[in-house]
């Protein structure tokens, strides 16, 4: 199977979108699933949120963050990834929730936001509100890459108020929770922000499911690297999640464990930069 890139565009200065041929993943994808990418035969297995599946293609939003994502950014339409595996994970139930919000503040979260709102809106009895926040105007994704068309109500926010509402997704959510009855909140993005968001929903007694992004290796339930603690019980983000009840997550552990390979990630980046310099 050749996992050819069929589209690659910038979302903003830091993030980009790719469409990749992956028919098996596309066929079975449900919002809340993720894919595992291996870019080269000596590459790592990286979990990646899926924004949508259409025909034999899946769409993913990727941040230029570490070595693999930066290297992939140098690839073009027509290049092929070594492996695209999935869909992995256990998605939350797609059902009637009532007034349901999806809030996101970061690349993978935005992808999940679009995917989830699109499907929730199709279910009768749901009123879907999407909140997407970005630091500033320049960071805002093009309209077709946002959940605007996928939700009943769409709220764009920027941290500095340069476009849309001023504030972070949490600020917008708080206003909503004050104003009206929200039945269910989903959220994805920056992990420390998701902790705060979970605490906020708890205050208003509204259930919340958030993506708990963790480091994965095999992503099939065998390594335990992505272990998260839900009400004291150990679960694996790769097969039990990655979305969990935000009120029950041990956020301190989740945040801490994400940093385990920081040093190694910097080393890989440095090594890659040296290599690229040599190429130039």
């Amino acid at each position: 199977m050749k996992h050819t890139i069929t589209r690659k565009e910038d979302l903003n200065a830091a993030d980009y979108v790719i469409d990749v041929i992956a028919p098996k993943v596309a066929k079975k994808f449900r919002p809340g699933n993720f894919a595992v990418l291996i870019t080269r035969s000596n590459g790592e297995r990286i979990p990646m949120s899926i924004e949508k599946a259409e025909g034999d293609k899946i769409t993913m939003y990727i941040k230029r963050l570490g070595k693999t994502s930066r290297e992939l950014d140098t690839w073009n339409v027509g290049d092929a990834l070594y492996k695209v595996i999935g869909p992995m994970g256990t998605p939350p139930p797609l059902k009637k929730y009532g007034t349901v919000v999806f809030a996101s503040d970061l690349v993978c979260g935005h992808a999940e936001n679009n995917a989830m709102c699109r499907e929730l809106k199709k279910i009768e009895g749901n009123h879907v509100i999407s909140i997407q926040s970005f630091p500033t105007k320049e960071d805002v994704y093009p309209e077709k890459e946002r959940a605007k068309k996928d939700a009943d109500e769409y709220i764009l926010a920027t941290g500095d108020g340069s476009v849309g509402r001023k504030g972070h997704m949490i600020d917008v959510l708080q206003e909503l929770l004050e104003e009206r009855k929200i039945d269910m909140v989903f959220a994805g993005g920056d992990i420390p922000a998701l902790q705060k968001l979970s605490e906020l929903t708890k205050k208003y007694n509204v259930p919340v499911m958030t993506t708990v992004r963790q480091i994965m290796v095999d992503a099939t339930g065998m390594c335990g690297s992505c272990r998260v603690f839900i009400d004291g019980e150990q679960k694996l983000a790769c097969i039990d999640g990655p979305m969990f009840d935000g009120h029950k997550v041990d956020w301190e552990a989740a945040i801490s464990r994400l940093a385990m390979f920081k040093g190694k990630e910097a080393e890989a980046m440095e090594c890659y930069n040296e290599k690229m310099k040599a190429v130039v």
């Binding site: 790592e44 297995r45 290796v217 464990r257 190694k264």
Partner: peptide, 29 residues
């Protein structure tokens, strides 16, 4: 939950399947 605590499976999958002993020429650390 502490960092630096592995299951043997994680340690061995990194080393054997993902060739982490060849890091950084192989990507998995």
């Amino acid at each position: 939950k502490l960092k630096g605590v592995y299951s043997a499976n994680e340690f061995l999958i990194r080393v054997n399947l993902m060739k982490a002993y060849k890091f950084p020429s192989w990507d998995t650390p």
